[in-house]
């Protein structure tokens, strides 16, 4: 159970986040959406403990985040960053193993190796397990990091309740098959009772995958609900500045949008329509 209460973050005289509250039950799949600069990454940083908010607080299962020591926090949540680079090249297998060895989970060597090999297989990098990180493509690097995150999650799960999983644009540099595969991995974690919170840019992908969509706009929560409740013509115009009416996929009535029919509102058009 994750509880975020009245979060405010002020930087350089500007509120990056204001009065943001949300809660997530075990097993929930939550997608955070919003235009660039809406505060999505800031909110993720606050929820993972990377950034201390100016107002409000975050609690894991009722325990305030600020009072959880770092080492213990690594057993309560794992985080997949947006992009990453390594100055000194580890191999894929070594990167994945960091998810177990750095939080120092008390697992024997055989269990560690079993978890690492399974994580590498799940993210589809078995063939590149001995490749060094600097030789990977952007998408492969992201999946190597995901393998590390999975190692941390699974090592946690062997010790206690399923931890929280935070994903910052996990599908950004992936092809369609890998986008779906990564979200399947997240779903599997949710089905084991873990809470998954992901920043996504693709509204269709978010609507198809998440139980709940949280729409951020200018540092505040604009809407919080199921895809059917949230993905509306009004929201698309107000938040994303696009005139577009969503369709629905029967029989579950999951909304979808087709960019072919979209019209940009004046303030977002990079090319003036007047010529």
């Amino acid at each position: 159970m994750l509880t975020v209460t009245d979060i405010g973050v002020r930087r350089g005289g500007r509120w990056l986040l204001q009065d943001v509250s949300l809660s997530a039950e075990p097993g929930a799949r939550i997608a955070i959406l919003g235009p660039n600069g809406a505060g999505k990454s800031t909110l993720l940083k606050v929820m993972t403990g990377e950034m201390t908010p100016d107002t409000g607080d975050v609690a894991f299962d009722g325990e305030p985040l600020a009072s959880i020591p770092r080492a213990r926090l690594a057993r309560r949540r794992a985080v997949l960053p947006q992009s990453s680079m390594l100055t000194f090249p580890f191999t894929v297998r070594e990167v994945a193993a960091l998810g177990i060895t750095v939080p120092a989970f008390p697992l024997d060597r055989a269990s560690q190796e079993r978890i690492v090999e399974r994580a590498i297989a799940v993210v589809g990098l078995k063939r590149l397990a001995d490749a060094t990180f600097d030789t990977l493509s952007g998408g492969e690097k992201q999946r190597a990091q995901l393998a590390r995150v999975l190692c941390q999650l699974w090592a946690c799960a062997e010790q206690g309740p399923a931890p929280h999983l935070f994903l910052d644009e996990p599908t950004a540099s992936q092809d369609l098959a890998h986008q779906l595969a990564i979200l399947d991995v997240a779903t599997a974690h949710a089905e084991r009772g873990g809470t998954v919170i992901a920043i996504l840019h693709d509204i269709n992908l978010a609507a198809a995958w998440a139980d709940r969509l949280v729409i951020l706009s200018e540092g505040q929560v604009y809407a919080d609900g199921t895809a059917a409740q949230v993905v509306t013509e009004a929201m698309l115009a107000d938040v994303f500045r696009v005139v577009l009416s969503p369709g629905t996929v029967p029989p579950t009535a999951v909304p979808f949008i087709l960019p072919q029919t979209a019209v940009l509102l004046e303030d977002r058009a990079l090319v003036s329509s007047g010529g």
Binding site: E50, V79, L86, L98, V102, P103
Partner: peptide, 13 residues
Amino acid sequence: LLGEAEAGHLGVS
């Protein structure tokens, strides 16, 4: 080596 934020995610103060 992963980065400071990532080290924090892995439980390092």
